[in-house]
Amino acid sequence: MAHTLAAVFVLRDMAERARHDLITAGLPGASIRLHDAGSDDISATENIRRDDSDSLLDNIKHFFTDLFGGHADRHIYAEAVRRGHVVLTLEGASDADIQRATDIVERYAPLDIDAHADHWRAGGWQGMPQNDSAMRQGASMQSSAPSQQGTSAGNLNEAAAASQQFAGGMASPSPSGTGANVRRYPSADNLPGTSYDDEQYYRNHWSSQYASSGGRFDDYDPAYRYGHSMAGSDSYRGRPWDEVEADLRSTWEHTYPQSAWDNFRAAVRHGWERITS
């Protein structure tokens, strides 16, 4: 499986040195990019308007969503860019290359994004939705311990694993010898998440069904993606909703304990029917 590596730096100079060493080590330069508020990588893709801070932040978030799927860390990387930091990414790398790249990048003192995110939240940052916070906590546990996916044997175990992979691909356990400040994620192309067209479709549905009640799209997005992903998984493909709902509910409540099933059931089912209908 291909992976994406990500690390955050205070100074662009340090990020550029890390990129230079990665290329010197034989890693493909086209796959190694630096992202900041003025970078061509982001502005060319997202057409950022630099005179509009809200637009800037939204577009940066979309950029990292494309890169990491629905993983909750995308909010932290976007906030890091907004605060003037530089994010280095290596895309489409093998396990062996990720290991080599991590050893190289750590020479240049990348930031501890967990500590910085905690500091930003203490200062009033509200950029990470509650649902994503739950996903992120699971990812943090996985980065330092063996996977604990699932709550029981059989389909529920497989469903829990699939739902965690779908949820942006929780950060894989760090390879032996790697540090906490360089993260790896399954490449977005390997995730059973949603495409840009699907996201627009779900945004439109959210706008017509839930926006008027005060619910945010970021609150409903995990539910849409969960239903979308599970409908295409090997465990549930071709099975009717009524037959699998109990399993999906159990897995949802285990994966998102702060998000009541009854509040998001309809959105999960809509994502499911997007695939099955």
Score class of each variant (00 low, 15 high):
V81L: 06
Y77A: 07
P129A: 00
R121A: 04
D73N: 11
F64Y: 13
P110R: 09
D54Q: 15
A115N: 02
D112S: 01
H85A: 08
I104M: 00
E91S: 12
D54I: 14
R50N: 15
L88P: 07
R49T: 14
E79Y: 03
G84F: 07
G69S: 09
D118Q: 13
I60E: 09
A109N: 11
D52E: 08
A101T: 04
I104E: 12
H119L: 13
Q126R: 08
I76H: 06
A44L: 03
L90D: 11
G92M: 00
G92W: 15
P129D: 03
Q99L: 13
G92I: 03
D112V: 03
H116V: 12
V87T: 01
K61Y: 11
N131M: 11
S53G: 09
A72M: 05
D66H: 13
D112I: 08
I113V: 15
G127R: 02
Y77Q: 09
T102H: 12
G138R: 06
P110Q: 13
I60C: 09
V86G: 03
E46R: 15
D95T: 11
H71I: 09
T45F: 02
L111A: 01
G84R: 04
R136T: 10
R82W: 12
R50F: 05
D54W: 01
H85T: 04
H75P: 11
G70R: 01
A78W: 00
R136L: 15
G124E: 02
A115C: 08
L67A: 07
